[in-house]
Nucleic acid binder design. Structure first.
Lengths: 359, 359
DNA sequence: CGTCTTTGCGGAACCGGTTCCGGCTCTCAC
DNA sequence: GTGAGAGCCGGAACCGGTTCCGCAAAGACG
């Protein structure tokens, strides 16, 4: 393994000059730079980042803290972060934190502290006060995507607004009996997301003059989770709503599949709307509120890098844009249930028996 | 930030003794060890891994090279690797390699080389000879999961056997017209996987005396990919097989959804079998050949760590167990198509019009 | 032509640990 | 009583870069 000293010797200069020539910092004449560069190439020299980090204090490495890597939102953010980091010449060290408290503590008290990271990006992770304190104690930029950390930069959609947007879409179609399938504290994520989406949902209902009722079911944020809960809900005709607002597309897709299993037609008999614009949503024709986690990841890197070079530590809270994407999973409710209290009996609107949406 | 020198001073010993006391290596009397340890605790001392790496040459960090992080197989392996690594006190640095050749080169020539990793784990990634050479040049253990690297340790299922197992299941049910939906070179993965699964499929057909025919369709390894290709295939009654063998569960699930969209009943009119046991497979009732990528990741870490401490570099090739999981997506073919060449016309077996499998 | 400034470069300190080597003390055996 | 050996510890070199400081040569200017 060639070291800088070897390069310097071959080029006939000092280590100091060789370092300057290769890093581009400091004054070096073009001719000697050329000599050093070709010497480095000849020896296959690659600077030891370890040695560089030791003296500069910068590691060119950022830590990513996420509760999952396999779920859509998280893996998309991670891919975006990775993309942006490698472009900037940074490495990405992945820390998965789960419920297990001893493992969590290891991550926060041990791994992150070892001066190995220049910044930390957290992905929708619920942090205890101790963990927040540990993160602050690092003295490095921290940016939270999809769920912020008190007093640090964050980057997220307005979850209240997103939920309201989705719900208002259903309301504008005429739905009055809507159930929200969302996450709760048992999920290994920042629970603010769940409570804010629920709050937005209820705000929209209240705005439409719909009195509060039994309208929320805690649901695992996965397709099978949504499937199971929806199967239960939809299987009972008395509880069955005309529309479901799911807190994530995964839940929504599960609900669509449950409807299919039960022979309930979407959107004729049931409308479903989600949040995310998951990669499977288009195939399922799911109406949803789009966010682009991959871009969130890239943006998080920009924020982190910016904070690293900023003189004074300043935090920023960026609200990401959202858009409603209307597909074929939402439509006006069937007439018989539009005004359930008037009991139209089994009046079925003509033409409601159209072939499936693939037609 | 407290340094080792601060700890030593507080404990009234030399740096050398402090280091020995904290690392546990070397002779230190119990009483001084106690003094050093409590001094370290008092100062909140955490050893700089950067400094330690510089002198020892070990980083306690392993690199993971993967073409994707969002796809099921890959993210599961990554989670398994992360789990095992953190348990052993190692960090995980993630490198995503994609098609973009310049980015790939950066990863191999620059990032991995900077003496930052003690070992490398690659996940089903297709490597060029140059890239393999770069990896060998690291002089560190490399283990390939789901697709090996010539001359390095590997860890994978027997893809030929898995494909044969799946195909033979269909054959044993009486299927004679089976199409394979699989990946090809355009996928950003080790193409050996694709060609071996195809080979296993064809071996099984040949073993059953079925002459080679037009039986393979290149398919993106995703649910929407399988959906699209299957929609094409199944939409044409003359091409429609009685069974599909998909190279991955994602493709298989897409095919099941395509069948649903076309009103083709599974398994009565179409059997589908995949490989993986994806997290959605149970919900879809998919018959599949199970592999457990999370365990593969953990095992890869064991292999890598073992190779690191081994005196002589030795490579091992571990074949992982597979099991056929029979669910409700496979059944005997409908009679009318069992012997298509005899042209039974539109003979439909009585009772073939059963309600859906949810019944 | 002398002085002042700029440019280019080398020496050396330094980052924060680990580890080799050697010295001191104490014990034990002969 | 003395020599050997073990246990414990300190000094110092070292890993491989970066950067401060200062010197020398070259160019700018009156």
């Amino acid at each position: 393994m060639a070291s800088l000293a070897d390069v310097a010797r071959l080029a006939g200069v000092s280590k100091a000059t060789a370092s300057r020539a290769l890093s581009g910092a400091g004054e070096v004449s073009p001719s000697t730079r050329e000599r050093v560069v070709s010497a480095a190439a000849e020896l296959g020299f690659v600077a030891s980042s370890t040695a560089a980090s030791l003296v500069t204090g910068r590691t060119r490495n950022v830590g990513v803290v996420s509760p999952f890597v396999s779920r859509w939102y998280f893996s998309e953010v991670i891919e975006g972060v990775e993309e942006a980091l490698i472009r900037e010449g940074y490495d990405l060290t992945l820390f998965r934190v789960q419920e297990d408290p001893s493992r969590r503590q290891r991550v926060f008290d041990y791994f992150l502290v070892r001066k190995r990271v220049d910044a930390v990006i957290t992905i929708a992770v619920a942090l205890s006060p101790d963990e927040v304190a540990a993160l602050r104690a690092l003295g490095r930029p921290v940016v939270g995507v999809g769920g912020g950390i008190p007093g640090m930069s964050s980057l997220q959609i307005d979850d209240v607004a997103a939920a309201r947007l989705a719900t208002e879409h259903l309301l504008s179609l005429g739905h009055r009996h809507i159930v929200h399938l969302g996450g709760d504290q048992t999920e290994q994520m920042d629970f603010h997301i769940h409570s804010q989406r629920l709050a937005g949902f209820r705000q929209a209902l209240a705005g439409a003059g719909i009195p509060p009722h039994d309208d929320f079911l805690a649901t695992p944020l996965t397709i099978p989770g949504g499937f199971q809960v929806a199967l239960d809900l939809l299987g009972d005709p008395r509880r069955r709503p005309t529309a479901i607002f799911a807190a994530s597309d995964e839940i929504a897709i599960g609900a669509i599949m449950a409807a299919g299993r039960l022979g309930i037609r979407v959107p004729q008999e049931l409308s479903v709307v989600g949040i995310d614009d998951h990669e499977l949503s288009e195939m399922h024709g799911l109406t949803t509120v789009r966010q682009v986690p991959r871009e969130q990841g890239e943006l998080a890197v920009s924020l982190a890098l910016e904070a690293m070079s900023a003189p004074a530590p300043e935090t920023r809270d960026v609200a990401l844009p959202i858009t409603l994407v209307v597909r074929s999973s939402t439509a006006a409710p069937p007439e018989r249930t539009t005004l359930p209290r008037e009991s139209h009996g089994h009046v079925v609107r003509a033409g409601a028996d159209l072939p499936d949406r693939d037609a």
